[in-house]
Nucleic acid binder design. Sequence first.
DNA 1: ATAGTTAGTGATTGAGCACTAACTTCAATT
DNA 2: AATTGAAGTTAGTGCTCAATCACTAACTAT
Lengths: 184, 184
Amino acid sequence: MVRMSAEERRESVIRAATTEFARGGYHGTSTEAIARRVGVSQPYLFRLFPGKKAIFLAAAERCVEDTIRMFAEAAEGLEGEEARRAMGGAYVEAISEQPERLMMQMQMYLAVAAAEEEGDREFGEAVRTGWMRLWDTIHLPLGADAHETTTFLAQGMLINCLVAMGFPADHRVWAGLDPSEPDS
Amino acid sequence: MVRMSAEERRESVIRAATTEFARGGYHGTSTEAIARRVGVSQPYLFRLFPGKKAIFLAAAERCVEDTIRMFAEAAEGLEGEEARRAMGGAYVEAISEQPERLMMQMQMYLAVAAAEEEGDREFGEAVRTGWMRLWDTIHLPLGADAHETTTFLAQGMLINCLVAMGFPADHRVWAGLDPSEPDS
DNA sequence: ATAGTTAGTGATTGAGCACTAACTTCAATT
DNA sequence: AATTGAAGTTAGTGCTCAATCACTAACTAT
């Protein structure tokens, strides 16, 4: 057993929770599964976070932040088609190296409706704000072209879905999806 | 209490389950919620279907079928750009009139990974087959152009995500997304 | 009328889950 | 060496939920 500071543990929990929630969504993931992955007892999670929702929220926010930073860094100093290729490359790298981060975000999107009907309006607001930040982050390097931005994000969402469905990378449904090529 | 034939009831269950699963996903939806929506007792669902999974599967398959038929009918007799506009219009109509059908499909995509890790390989296979059928259905009217097909589906997935997040139709994040206009 | 079938319910159960409370272990400080 | 505070555990509670079972009500054919 390795003892850690509470702050470090919280980080571990966020990472583990991202992996687990990405797979099972909010309701399909037990706190016990998260605790097991962290290597800590299940009740201890409730000392680090006020509840399961807070863990989900923390993981979701972290994923959005990471993704925004990823695009910002990839596009740094670039513009237009060059920026697009750089960001596309970063996305492809992310999907192969940390698919949990992107699946977690899909789970997050789908969790909005359920949360909203349970009276939690804040969650949806946070998710939408995150999306807008992501939008703006890629909008600028793409020459502030709304159509380009939307096309880029649309391809990203399609990739997320194909990955979620478990299509292997060389499957024919990936045809026509090459972010390193321009779309028009 | 309205008495129905078992077959009619099963239809009602599929409709109700679509609405409920679309909102809460597999694990976030109780069989009681479905039964309540149908207007029938919870145990009776298990007379009509062997289990909760079977209900989810039936609803998922129905949604895919309906969507494929929708595109096939919209594009009937049309080709290329005309077919694209017709199918895009049908999609927009569907998203405003039966968003559950599309949200259910998103839930279905995300359920694949979880099912696969629980040893259920068939479910993922069925989902992927459905996607390929959808792909082929829109591929032909679009002049068998893989890039066009992918772009069309990508826009669809983006729309699904924006709807899931609860963005109102006039929000700025919808900018650049107009299926009635060509994309290049 | 009666025998048989089909639609549907109420009560219940066993498992899993989020969360709590009380206790223990360990490392740094005095 | 004793103290203390933070890290972590064990034991337990109340609740939800899928699924089962025994039963009733309504329809149908003879």
